[in-house]
C-alpha cells in the first residue's frame, strides 16, 4: 500500500470508524434514548461519507463549493461594465458549447461597454466545483432525519408513560408479566 492510497482512503476509514461507533451504541445499549443517540451518530457519519465522496481536489486549479462565482453580478445588466464579474465566469475543462457561447456573449458585453474586454479575457479564473449532488441528497436527509428522530423520541415518551421505564430489558420483563 503506497502512501497515496493510504491518504486517499484515510477519510473513508475515519468515517467507517465513526459509523461503527454509532452502530456499537445502537446494539450494545439497552437504554432507548442512548439507542436514538447512537442512530444519530451513525446517521451523521453516513452524511460525512457522502460528502467526502463528493469532494474534488486538484493540484493546479482552485476547487470550491458548487456556488458559481459571478453569476449574480451578471443578472443585472449594469454590473457587467465593471468587468471583474465577467472575468470570474467559471469553466469546467470540458465546458459545453453553450458555455462558450455564454462567454462570447460576456466578451461582447465587455467590448460594448468600452472597457477593453480583451485585456480581461485571459484573466478568466480556472475554477473547479465539488459535486453538488451529494450535498442535495444529504441536505434533505438531514431534515428528514430530525423529523424521524422526533418521532422516535415521541414514542419513547409514550413508552415511558405506560411502562415507567426506558430500559429495554425492564420493558421486556413487564411484557412477559402481562402475558
Amino acid at each position: 500500500m503506497t502512501p497515496e492510497t493510504f491518504f486517499g482512503l484515510f477519510n473513508y476509514w475515519i468515517v467507517i470508524c465513526l459509523m461503527m461507533t454509532g452502530f456499537y451504541i445502537v446494539i450494545s445499549s439497552g437504554n432507548l434514548i442512548k439507542t436514538v443517540i447512537g442512530l444519530n451518530i451513525f446517521q451523521t457519519s453516513v452524511f460525512l461519507l457522502y460528502i467526502t465522496m463528493g469532494k474534488l481536489t486538484d493540484p493546479v486549479k482552485r476547487v470550491t463549493a458548487p456556488i458559481l462565482e459571478g453569476g449574480h453580478g451578471d443578472s443585472h445588466g449594469d454590473h457587467s461594465a465593471h468587468g471583474e464579474h465577467v472575468a470570474q465566469v467559471s469553466f469546467e475543462e470540458h465546458a459545453s458549447e453553450q458555455l462558450h457561447d455564454a462567454v462570447k456573449h460576456a466578451h461582447a458585453d465587455l467590448s460594448e461597454a468600452g472597457h477593453g474586454g480583451a485585456e480581461h479575457a485571459h484573466e478568466v479564473a480556472e475554477v473547479l466545483y465539488s459535486n453538488p449532488l451529494p450535498s442535495v441528497l444529504m441536505l434533505t436527509a438531514i431534515v428528514v432525519g430530525i423529523a424521524t428522530t422526533a418521532l422516535a423520541l415521541a414514542l419513547i415518551v409514550r413508552i415511558r408513560e405506560d411502562y415507567g421505564t426506558i430500559e429495554e430489558d425492564e420493558i421486556l420483563e413487564l411484557d412477559k408479566e402481562l402475558q
Binding site: F47, G54, V63, A65, S135, M138
Partner: peptide, 10 residues
C-alpha cells in the same frame, strides 16, 4: 469538504 449548504443544515 465544500458542502456549505449541508454544514449549515447540520
Amino acid at each position: 469538504l465544500d458542502a456549505p449548504d449541508v454544514a449549515f443544515t447540520e
